[in-house]
């Protein structure tokens, strides 16, 4: 690989502090003040991480989802054989939704719509969809700006936000 003329610092997103603060406000509110279970959002985040192949996103676990029951054994089910796994129908519906979002967002079927509305309110679907939009976009940033090699699985605090609070 060629040497960069513009080497990036480790906390490269800090190059845009105002944008980063705005992102953390949105992301923290979505994660810690939303109405969708954290374990559901974590399943969506990890399904995207797997598809986008973001090393950072794949190896991070948010503590709130772990506390919500998403153990490593259950994380391991978010794979190709998920349809026949012991994941709940609600969790499987979310994985199907994320896959559609990533591969063919215009292809959401009437069956999927009905299934999602069985499990979530319209407001929760907006939250879930906004979450997946951010998961996708920011996992791509992590890839585009160079992920850390060989990163181990790491449990970190769930993003949160409160007025006047500094970003993590």
């Amino acid at each position: 690989m060629s040497t960069s003329r513009h080497p990036l610092r480790g906390d490269v997103l800090g190059e845009q502090p105002e944008a980063m603060a705005a992102f953390w406000r949105l992301y923290g509110l979505l994660w810690s003040h939303g109405t969708v279970d954290q374990s559901i959002k974590e399943i969506a985040r990890l399904r995207n991480a797997r598809t986008t192949d973001c090393a950072y996103c794949r190896n991070v676990r948010f503590a709130g989802a772990r506390d919500d029951g998403l153990t490593e054994d259950r994380v391991a089910l978010i794979e190709d054989g998920y349809e026949t796994s012991t994941l709940t129908e609600r969790e499987k519906a979310v994985i199907r939704y994320v896959d559609t979002f990533l591969h063919d967002p215009a292809g959401l079927t009437d069956t999927q719509r009905a299934e999602l509305l069985e499990h979530f309110t319209p407001g929760q679907l907006v939250e879930l969809t906004a979450g997946v939009a951010l998961f996708l976009g920011f996992s791509k940033i992590a890839v585009a700006l160079g992920p850390p090699p060989g990163m181990p699985t790491l449990v970190v605090p769930t993003p949160d936000w409160a007025p006047g609070e500094a970003q993590p």
Binding site: V12, E15, Q16, A133, L134, L136, G137, K140, L145
Partner: peptide, 16 residues
């Protein structure tokens, strides 16, 4: 960095 961030929003919320 700004370009990366705004592309993340453009793509994510186009799909939204």
């Amino acid at each position: 960095v700004a370009l990366c961030e705004v592309l993340a929003l453009f793509e994510g919320f186009c799909r939204f």
